Simulated scan of single mutants.
Amino acid sequence: MGDIRRGRETGTLGKLMALIDLVALADDPMRFTDILSQSDQPRGTLHRQLSHLVEEGLLETDRDGRYLPGIRLLNLASRSWARNEFRTVAEPHLRLLQAQTGETVHLGVLRGTEVIYLDKVEGRQSVRMYSEIGNASPAYCTGVGKAALSALDDISLEARVSGLQFHAYTEHTHRSVADLQADIAAIRARGCAFDREEHENGICCVAAPIRSDDGDILAGVSVTGPAYRVTPEKLQEWAPLVRAAAAAIMQDIRSRLGPRR
């Protein structure tokens, strides 16, 4: 177990993560003395760190005072696994959409006021774009992000965007909450979002929202390409295809990732 900790104990977070690793990877629940012998932490410091982890639900103790992984870790793992499953569920629909349009298709999930790209299917004629799997972009100026924002109710939307600081990535980027909210209202009415060079000059897209029934997944799917090829007419032509892909993904979410209570 000692190898797990090496190189990670220079900061408070690293020390706490090393303790979680130590307990979570142990074959059996660990006593305080077992952890003390392997942690290289002073007794008092270790006791405080373990107490904090127990308070946060990341560790828990059994009737004999031994430490084991907490239920919060299970919850976090479950959410992470669900998102991996979400990507798997969406993948065939992303590939179909790419085949139908010939352009790059994105899948992104909303996190706060950003969208995180979970998947990307390159177009037949790939164009260099900022988007890469794992990258984050502002939700207010990306098609996927605005589509995901449109899936929020009014109160949740207001809470997310009220304090936004708008950065003008291009001359087309929204500059205020009022402009963004007006755009979101239009997106809700037509069922799709447009990004007309709002985040990157020369890049346009059309996107549709994805929402699980429990609201745990707020996401979007888009078709993206260069403005010289992806004309306003093309965006309108592809809008029904993107909406259909989003609807198909949501249907699969209900059947495969629905509540398991």
Rank of each mutant, 00 (worst) to 15 (best):
Y117M: 09
D21A: 10
D21N: 07
G258P: 07
N201L: 15
K15Y: 07
T231K: 05
Q125I: 11
R261Q: 12
A185G: 02
A18S: 15
R72N: 11
S150H: 08
S126T: 10
L50A: 03
V109S: 04
A147I: 08
L157I: 12
T142H: 03
I20E: 08
Y67K: 02
V223M: 14
R79N: 08
G57R: 11
G11W: 09
K146P: 00
G134I: 09
Y67G: 00
R229P: 00
R190L: 05
C204D: 07
I203A: 02
Q49R: 15
R211T: 08
G102F: 11
D213S: 15
G57H: 10
V121C: 04
L59T: 09
D27N: 12
R111T: 03
R260K: 15
G70V: 08
S162Y: 08
E200T: 12
T10H: 14
Y67M: 03
I20V: 15
Q49T: 01
Y67N: 01
A239R: 07
V223Y: 15
E198N: 00
H167E: 06
L76C: 01
P240E: 03
R6Y: 10
R190D: 01
D27P: 01
D179R: 10
V127L: 14
A239I: 05
Q38V: 05
P232V: 07
M1R: 08
D28G: 01
E122T: 06
S222G: 03
A90M: 13
M129D: 02
T231H: 03
E60L: 10
L110G: 01
F166V: 06
L58V: 03
T142A: 01
S37W: 11
Q181V: 06
E197K: 02
E132M: 03
A219N: 09
R175P: 00
L96K: 15
V105F: 12
E55H: 06
L59G: 02
G2E: 15
H174E: 01
A82E: 14
A99Y: 11
G14W: 14
L257C: 06
S37T: 11
G14D: 07
R256P: 00
V89N: 02
